Computed example of a mutant assay.
Amino acid sequence: MQSNVPALRKESRAVATGEYLTFKLGDEEYGMDILKVQEIRSYEQPTRIANAPDFIKGVVNLRGVIVPIVDLRIKLRCPTAEYNSFTVVIVLNVRNRVVGAVVDSVSDVLELSKDAVRPAPELNAGSVDTRFITGIGTIQDRMLILMDIEGLMSSAEMGLMDAAVAA
């Protein structure tokens, strides 16, 4: 019976089913693997790092751990990135590194079945980067863009992890 467990996990990852934390970036709703989420915190102004890209807002001290804060709204080119009472930081554990992701708001946790997830669209436009979209989830009248948050945060262009750790 134990031999079936790894096969089930492998299959569920391949079709992007499972539990997702849903969040908003602008008018769009996204989902990320709940297992990558360590905690959700209210937004606090981070300490700015000189010469960092615009999407890296700075760092915060989280119980003795210095955590880089990435504004996903800026990174994913949302039209606006306003900070208000709904703005939160999703603290992630990505490849044994703690990283914060700023989003407009967090909605809920949803479990998506295999039937509720469709493959990510294949777009030929050179300006559209779909590398970190694992699929599109639908539940009732909601459509979720499912993100590979681990792949995005550990990508070379983010510059948050050493090449050896990201590989």
Rank of each mutant, 00 (worst) to 15 (best):
V37A: 07
L76Y: 00
Q45D: 13
R77H: 14
V60S: 02
V91E: 01
T17W: 06
A16V: 06
S154A: 15
R131K: 14
G64M: 12
I74C: 03
G151S: 07
A14M: 12
V128S: 03
V67L: 04
V99P: 04
Q38K: 15
D54M: 11
I74T: 08
M153P: 02
A166S: 14
A16R: 02
I74F: 03
G151A: 07
S42M: 13
I49G: 05
V102S: 08
T87E: 03
I139D: 11
E150C: 07
E122G: 11
E111F: 14
L72D: 02
V165L: 15
A116E: 15
I133C: 15
I149A: 10
F132T: 03
A163N: 06
V89C: 09
A164G: 00
V60W: 01
G151V: 01
K24C: 08
Q38R: 15
A52M: 06
V94T: 12
I66C: 03
L152A: 14
G26A: 08
R97G: 04
R63P: 01
V128K: 12
S155G: 09
V128P: 08
N51Y: 08
D115L: 07
F23L: 14
P79M: 04
D27E: 13
V117G: 12
I90P: 02
E157P: 09
I56C: 10
E19K: 15
D33F: 01
L62N: 02
V37P: 04
S105Q: 09
C78E: 13
D104K: 04
S107Q: 09
L76V: 08
V109Y: 07
I69F: 01
V94K: 01
F86H: 09
G64F: 05
V102R: 06
V67H: 02
Q2H: 12
V99H: 05
P6R: 04
M161Y: 05
P121C: 11
I133G: 15
M147P: 02
S42L: 13
T80C: 02
I74W: 01
E44R: 09
M161E: 14
V59A: 03
F86A: 02
L35C: 09
R13P: 04
L144Y: 12
I34N: 09
A14K: 14
M143L: 13
Y20E: 02
Q45R: 10
V70C: 10
T47C: 02
G31Y: 04
F23R: 05
Q140F: 07
P79W: 00
I40C: 09
G31D: 04
T87G: 07
G58P: 07
P6Q: 08
V70E: 04
V15P: 12
N124F: 11
K75P: 01
S12L: 06
Y43S: 04
R9W: 10
M147Q: 10
